[in-house]
């Protein structure tokens, strides 16, 4: 009896976000998500991976409180989510930087909205600008930066409000491959210091396996959880060696096999449609 109770409370400790029976139907009648159940452990990096249009962004925005689910609820440490909160911050795919504001003001914007004094917020912003590797660019405007640098600004802004949970929607989708890899490593280093829970959406299997502790594979629309993988990589070695580890290669293969099935189903469905 006692044991059971302990087990329950234990798992509640580990889980920071629980997604419970989430369904989302958009106004036009598109059923984006249906019956999504998921526990996300604290202090880890969890990736949502799945075919295009399966509802990854939708799920992430529901967790962020930016969208209301049609059914079900999301709880953060047992508290039902009713809107955005200080415990979560979002990194946008298109960066969402204010073009009229300097890097430092953009980074400090979350603090500005919460009414922090200029001194305090610029001090914190300066620290995070340095942490994401943009020292010296405090007074630059977004249009003077490359895509990769802009996304670093977006990341610094999310870190500056000191939320426990960082939600990232395909943060590297619009940067080139080298920048992307560099950014992935920087992100991992940063998270080793910052101890955040990160939920990360990506299209790329390699990226998902490389950065995450846990990968949530979503099925085609209406999206639901198809599979959960935990990757177990030895990250003490160099990035290239990590990418040669058996665990890494096996996970990539396994996930690719599942996604390929979706593709074939899509194709045969399309073929049926054409013939029918």
């Amino acid at each position: 009896m006692n044991q059971v109770a302990e087990k329950v409370s234990n798992s509640a400790d580990d889980t920071i976000v629980s997604v419970d029976g989430i369904a989302k139907r958009y106004e036009g009648g598109v059923q984006a998500l249906k019956g999504v159940n998921l526990d996300i452990p604290a202090g880890q990096l969890t990736t949502f991976l799945g075919p295009s249009g399966c509802g990854k962004t939708t799920l992430l925005k529901i967790i962020a409180g930016l969208l209301d689910p049609t059914e079900g609820e999301v709880r953060i440490r047992g508290q039902k989510v009713t809107g955005p909160g200080p415990d979560r911050s979002f990194v946008f795919q298109d960066f969402a930087l204010m073009p009229w504001a300097t890097v430092i003001r953009n980074v400090a914007f979350g603090l500005e909205l919460s009414g922090a004094s200029k001194e305090e917020r610029y001090e914190k912003a300066t620290k995070y600008i340095a942490e994401v590797g943009l020292k010296g660019f405090e007074d630059a405007y977004p249009h003077e930066l490359s895509g990769g640098m802009r996304q670093r600004v977006g990341l610094a802004r999310a870190l500056a409000v000191n939320a426990d949970i960082i939600l990232m929607d395909e943060p590297f989708a619009s940067v080139d491959e080298q920048t992307r890899r560099k950014f992935q490593d920087d992100l991992l280093d940063l998270l080793a210091i910052e101890k955040k829970t990160v939920i990360f959406v990506t299209h790329s299997i390699e990226e998902a396996v490389y950065v995450s502790d846990q990968i949530v594979l979503l099925s085609r629309r209406p999206g639901k959880v198809a599979n959960i993988f935990t990757t177990d990589l030895d990250r003490s070695v160099s990035p290239d060696e990590v990418r040669r580890q058996k665990n890494y290669l096996d996970s990539v293969d396994e996930i690719w096999a599942i996604l390929r099935e979706y593709l074939q189903e899509d194709e045969s469905a399309a073929a049926r449609k054409v013939r029918g």
Binding site: A64, G65, L66, G83, P84, G85, P86, R88, S89, F90, F92, D94, A96, M98, F109, G110, E112, L113, S114, V161
Partner: peptide, 21 residues
């Protein structure tokens, strides 16, 4: 741009802050 509005909302910006900033 809608994503700027979403950004402001994600940091719990009020409607007034959203309009002014």
């Amino acid at each position: 741009h809608p994503s700027l509005l979403e950004m402001s909302r994600s940091f719990q910006g009020s409607r007034m802050q959203e309009i002014m900033k």
